[in-house]
Amino acid sequence: MAGVEDKKPVLEMVQADGADDGCVTFVLHEEDHTLGNALRYVVMKNPDVEFCGYSITHPSESKINFRIQTRGGLPATEPLRKGLNDLTEVCQHVLNTFEVRVKEFREQQGEAME
């Protein structure tokens, strides 16, 4: 198989026959509760989302089915995109706060030593 490499899919979209863009199951490969539950939380915080949930298909398969149903015919990719962006922003803020606080704690300890 020289050169021909089958790239494994990372993200798939599954839709039932006749369903609109607002009801989509995303298949996130190589993911588990770590991203699934965190992402479900931020997506459910979106008022445009009617339903959001995820399931691990089988313990021996490393993928999750991530279901989003929206209100008013909004494409389900939009809340997913917003959810991922919101989660990134949360992480960025947590990271900045954490690094500032660790630095402050170090300085305080340094003062106490002197």
């Binding site: 990372v10 996130l28 993911e31 965190a38 992402l39 991922l84 962006n85 989660l87 990134t88 992480c91």
Partner: peptide, 9 residues
């Protein structure tokens, strides 16, 4: 966790 989000975006 941020990298995971960016990957799927």
């Amino acid at each position: 966790l941020m990298a995971k989000c960016q990957k799927f975006l």
